[in-house]
Amino acid sequence: MRFKASIQNTNTFTKLTASFNSLGPLAWVKLDAEHVHFTVIPEQGTQVWAVVSIDSIFDTYTVQSAANNVINLEVPLVLLNRALKTAWNASSAQIRLTKKDNVPLLALTIVTTSSSSHAGFPTAPTNNDDGFDAPFEQQLGGNSRETIITQEVPVRVLAPDVVAGLHEPQCREPDVHILLPPLLQLKSISDRFTKLSLIGKSGNGSAAPRTRLELSANMHGCLKLSIKTDAMSISSLWTDLSNPELDPSQITMDIADHPSTKMKQLGSADGRSEEGWATVRIDARDWGKVMSVGRLGGRVVACFCHEFALILYVYLPTDNGEQESVLTYYLKTTGHGTPLSS
């Protein structure tokens, strides 16, 4: 079993692991010849199934195993993320699967070049043998020196039959699909709504009840985020968003029979109509975690299954327009929150 790669884009990789880590502590990482699959299935809350193209994080890449050259790992995300943070602005970083005292681990070797302005700081302890080189180089007039950092992340190798039972959730065809506004914008408004819902509840002493955000969209470019408390009801409405066209090759049914085609007959583009909305209610804290993927800055298509589930497809931006990486989030609606007063 061999896995070795040089990390081409440490910043993306770091943001990616940070976003996954907000959902759960462990990730199932599946490495094959073309993709890296990250799957986080927490006890409760949102699942994410991500398929990341090799190119978007790795450069040279080797993966070999007895099981069709596929390696399955259980990776503690906190440690991986922490290790990657040291690679921030590194000149190069490598990752490989190795073993130490019979414990499998992912070893990151990070080479950073620090400029003289940081020379006052003690360098991180390194295991390299050529400890003399750095000060020597500086004496020669070089204003920078190289530091090699090795980070080890213990992992568990998962046998193929262990993961064989894990399947991506199945869901019916969505009623509404819509391109979301920038996630950071959506997040800042959601966060404020969450804060609003907690006003006056902190004093009670008892644990604050879970806040439910209501998220609705129609097939006319409108998205509505709302929350209702005793003291107020508030909603933000986005208009002029786009509802992407369906790709006939991706769906099994005739487009004319697709639920979204029927939803298109209802509602209006100014969002004032009561009809044509597909609605889900989601836990505000969970939603906040999902929104953290916004730092990656990709396009996000939200698929609404009315009163059932919300599926977010996050397409990571690619520089060269090659294979896209897709992160898929599955959110279940949290039952009936506040009854709709229509």
Binding site: D230, M232, I234, S236, W238, T239, L241
Partner: peptide, 10 residues
């Protein structure tokens, strides 16, 4: 711009 927030205070 394209966001309209409506808040009804009880």
């Amino acid at each position: 711009s394209t966001i309209r927030t409506t808040c009804d205070l009880t």
